[in-house]
């Protein structure tokens, strides 16, 4: 007589070897590898996107007549890429033969260094971007009338008593200095926010994984 599925199930699991649990010795290896690989993938995509953007920015900015914005910004992106390329090389040097905890700790200290450097860089980058934007709209296209001069002329018609410094209204210079100052002051915070926006999820997972592994070690 054919056995019912219930009988197959019951009899099958009566045998001793049917329910041997695997050892929990490899618990975090896969997780660590997946996490770091995911980060590496995101990091690579991010920098390729910046490289493409920087390359496209130059011809487009010339075409739309704001080269004084596009060229310095593209140069800045290239500089950022150069700095982060060094980080990329360091990341690839992390010893994958170490145990999962050591591997994640090495990765974590690499991430901390990356965040620290990019936070410092952001204090310069954001004012620089602001400066490029102003320069772009002030100087206009190559070999053409300077829109900034037209702006000053119109401004002087509206406010004839304005005080000028090097031909530029003082109030404009003050607004520019305040803008640069604020961006330099908050650049670090903006930079951190920016990193969190892109890598926040994965960095939280990293912290959680490390804290669990430390917990398990106790």
């Amino acid at each position: 007589m054919e056995k019912s599925i219930e009988t197959i199930w019951k009899e099958g699991f009566l045998k001793n070897d049917a329910l041997v649990a695997p050892k929990l010795n490899n618990l975090y290896n896969q997780k660590s590898i997946h996490l770091v690989d995911k980060f590496k993938r995101m990091y690579r995509i991010n920098w390729i996107a910046i490289l493409v953007f920087a390359c496209v920015l130059i011809p487009i900015s010339i075409f739309v007549k704001i080269p004084y914005m596009g060229i310095p910004m593209a140069l800045m992106f290239f500089a950022v890429l150069f700095i982060n390329r060094k980080f990329s090389k360091k990341l690839n040097k992390i010893d994958t033969t170490e145990n999962s905890y050591q591997y994640l700790m090495s990765f974590n200290s690499w991430v901390k260094e990356l965040v620290q450097t990019n936070t410092k860089l952001s204090r310069i980058l954001y004012p620089y971007i602001f400066l490029s934007l102003i320069a772009g709209f002030w100087f206009g296209g190559f070999g053409e009338n300077i829109p900034g001069n037209e702006f000053v002329a119109n401004f002087l018609i509206e406010f004839p008593n304005s005080y000028l410094v090097f031909g530029i209204p003082l109030v404009g210079i003050l607004i520019f200095i305040i803008g640069v100052g604020l961006l330099a002051f908050f650049g670090g915070v903006i930079g951190k926010w920016d990193i969190n926006l892109v890598y926040g999820g994965i960095l939280k997972k990293l912290a959680l994984l490390i804290s669990e592994m430390e917990d398990l070690k106790k």
Binding site: K3, I8, K15, A18
Partner: peptide
């Protein structure tokens, strides 16, 4: 996974 062939088939 199991030595019991019927269980494997199930």
């Amino acid at each position: 996974a199991f030595s019991d062939e019927s269980l494997n088939l199930l």
